[in-house]
Amino acid sequence: MSTGKKKVLVIDDEPAVVTYLETLLSDNGYETTSAENGRVGFEIVKRDRPDLVCLDITMPEESGIRFYRQLKEDPALAATPVVVVTAVTGFGGDPEPFRKFLSTRKHVPPPEGFLAKPIDQQEFLETVARVLARAGAPALPG
C-alpha cells in the first residue's frame, strides 16, 4: 500500500551516511529504502521502482558508476532520476567533469543532480525536491 510519499533509494556503503540521509529525508516527508552497493541497489530499483536514487560512487563490490550506467541503459528504468552524492576527489562538486568522465567510456546522460560530500542539508533537500519536480514522477498509485 502506498503512503503517497515519494520513495527515495539511498545507495552508500557508509552506514553513517545512509542513516543520515534516510533520517533527513524521512523527517522531510519522503519514504526511504537503502542499499550498501550498486548491485543490491539495482535489484531494489527493479523491484520497488523508487522515484529517485541518491547514489554514492566509491563502494566495494559494485561502484556507483556501474550502477548508473546499468540504470540509464535500461529503457524501463532510465527515467529514474539520480542525485549523485560523492566524496570522489577531483569532481569537486561540479557535475561537468563527472559527465565528461561518464561520456569518455560510453555515452550516458549526466546525472539529474550532483552534490559533493559533506552535503549542505538545505541544498540536498532542495536538489531532491527540484529533481523530483522536474521528473514529474507521481507517487506510485496505491
Binding site: 553513517a16 551516511v17 543520515y20 533520517t23
Partner: peptide
C-alpha cells in the same frame, strides 16, 4: 576522500 565520508557521518550524527 575518507575524511569527507567521516565528516558526513559526524554531521549526520549531529543532525540526529
Amino acid at each position: 576522500h575518507g575524511i569527507k565520508n567521516v565528516l558526513m557521518g559526524l554531521e549526520g550524527g549531529v543532525y540526529i
